[in-house]
Design a protein around this nucleic acid. Sequence first.
DNA 1: GAAGCCCTTGACACCGGTTTCCACTCCCTT
DNA 2: AAGGGAGTGGAAACCGGTGTCAAGGGCTTC
Lengths: 360, 360
Amino acid sequence: MTSSKTPNKSADDSDVNAALESGRRRATINDIARLAGVSKKTVSRVINQSPFVREETRQRIEAVIAEWGYAPDPQARGLAFRRSFLIGMIYDNPNPQYVVNMQLGLLDGMRGSGFELVVHPCDRGSPTFLQDVRMFIERQKLFGVVLPPSVSEDERVADLLRDIGCEYIRIASVPLDEEEHMIVGHDRLGAQAMGEHLVSLGHERIGFITGLPSFRSSHERRGGFEDALAKAGVKLDPDYVVQGAYTFESGLACGEALLAKTPRPTAIFAGNDEMAAGVLQAARRAGLTVPEDLTVVGFDDFQIAQAVWPPLTTIHIPTREVGRMAAEKLIAREGYEPGDPSTIIPYLVARESSATPKKV
Amino acid sequence: MTSSKTPNKSADDSDVNAALESGRRRATINDIARLAGVSKKTVSRVINQSPFVREETRQRIEAVIAEWGYAPDPQARGLAFRRSFLIGMIYDNPNPQYVVNMQLGLLDGMRGSGFELVVHPCDRGSPTFLQDVRMFIERQKLFGVVLPPSVSEDERVADLLRDIGCEYIRIASVPLDEEEHMIVGHDRLGAQAMGEHLVSLGHERIGFITGLPSFRSSHERRGGFEDALAKAGVKLDPDYVVQGAYTFESGLACGEALLAKTPRPTAIFAGNDEMAAGVLQAARRAGLTVPEDLTVVGFDDFQIAQAVWPPLTTIHIPTREVGRMAAEKLIAREGYEPGDPSTIIPYLVARESSATPKKV
DNA sequence: GAAGCCCTTGACACCGGTTTCCACTCCCTT
DNA sequence: AAGGGAGTGGAAACCGGTGTCAAGGGCTTC
């Protein structure tokens, strides 16, 4: 028996080492333990940042881990932890840009954490909706889920999550839960800013197109807008408020309805950019020039706001940053600082679709 | 020790059954085996559709599974299989609508299969790109990955996947690999249809805005367009072909460049809808009316095509269906029929932005 | 100098499935 | 009736990690 000097490499190991070195096999915790001359339990301690490991031992193990590029198997770890390293995003938001930005933000917050993002669009109207959500979470033993609007506003979902003990973060325009489970978007503040903007330009007869009433943000946007107008002594005439559906088509229809009123409003604030784009088209059909004859403004600052003519004055929502914070909060790694909530305040982006109304 | 007569239900089981019934604990394969009076190996055989189970036994076990709503733990199963039940989507496509539609399509194809979708945006330019992709796949032991453009066109990625033996499907506008690994989008045919459309309207002096040269589809779109024109005896003047970047801004700039030429083109075909929207804006700035003074057409049929004025004539790409087929092909379940490739042919959607050119 | 304590460490069972190996039925030949 | 093959089910090991618990070593304390 040829004995090597190093006690941690016996003759029996030669072939397994060969397999390892050739890259035919990924390193396991046992390999690392053997190569470092410790038990796998100690390696496990290092991986899980247990304080009960001597500094010298830790460094030796970490060196071996780095040398072999070892990464623990999430499945095996999850099996033992009774929990996976997957984060679910359960959503029913129909806007692709919102969805993608949110995903990017969540991934920003998860980067380097070893977690992965599993997407799960859903239909809140389906009779099996809650059952589906439950199944999804329990089968995958999700570490946690992120709920953007409007799923975040569904108390049945929140109850379910509390019931099965799954971590969750709700993203909504108003607080709906304990601070710990919320990221608040403050749509109200954004709408206020828009109200102030329109008032400062000198508008007094303003049309408003609401969003879907099933979205909490629709009411927040309207409420914030009314607040700002009231503070300036301008009243939002209920007759100039029409119900939209967050789509381009509904914006077109609502825009035509508002422009048919006498006297015509000098400005129209649509609950989102798509509807504002619809209003632009309605104005064009009515032979009006924006912003000379009519100011049109939106909300969200999605790409469409810059892809129409004139580019829309709108409210920017930092969706990606919201997502990042949600993910960071959810996985709450050590070294995680709560993130500055002041950065998630919506803000006004003035473009060319808003101007001072013409003298009558 | 008190022995009971029934081997499958001893006194010891009473409390575990209680825990089960109360829902405090999810059923495991052992519970199902005990309740059905068989070994867990037999339950495993049923789950994995082994033919070596008596029909009567199978039905009894399936009844118990259904009654208790049992679903095997994907982590434990994956650990034994050395493979997870996760499908990765690795992409760098910047268009949110494409990304979301593709995700929806993939999920359509995965529904009910027990697989989940993990999204993985990437940066092909990063020095650690291949390393990242490899890490992602190996750590999660992905069952397979789907590669939409332009990642699908990167041979380094395909080589890597073959090398590590990971199943994959490439989605691209032209065949790049064995049929088994491809879903072909045939952008060329779509561009041909657009060429025929413009020619049939009577256009002869046509401007073309190409997409990013790093996307294979950009060349296909141009090529198909030229084919159609050539067949009709119309030549695409290279002087009227400008390089865009698939963005609204680039469309605006390219549109202005094309409109500055003399004689002015009577129609402009932009490589995608966003650039076409930019051209619309350039036309407006130039004081031209679309389609009376200028025909503008796009490609993709994304939402923006309907949210601009006038709505764009464009080519519809059935992205969601493509995604569904990709997923079905990847997991190739029994009972899977290849799906009709004829449904993934792009087709023309005529809207209001194209018309017969005015007589000069 | 022995007892007591804390810090480290490792042996062993376990997470919930699958696979290997083997024994045991059946059932059908010869 | 014996032999043989195919069909069936059980015990134990394994996938790659983690929890539990007890033991070893060095240090204080009296």
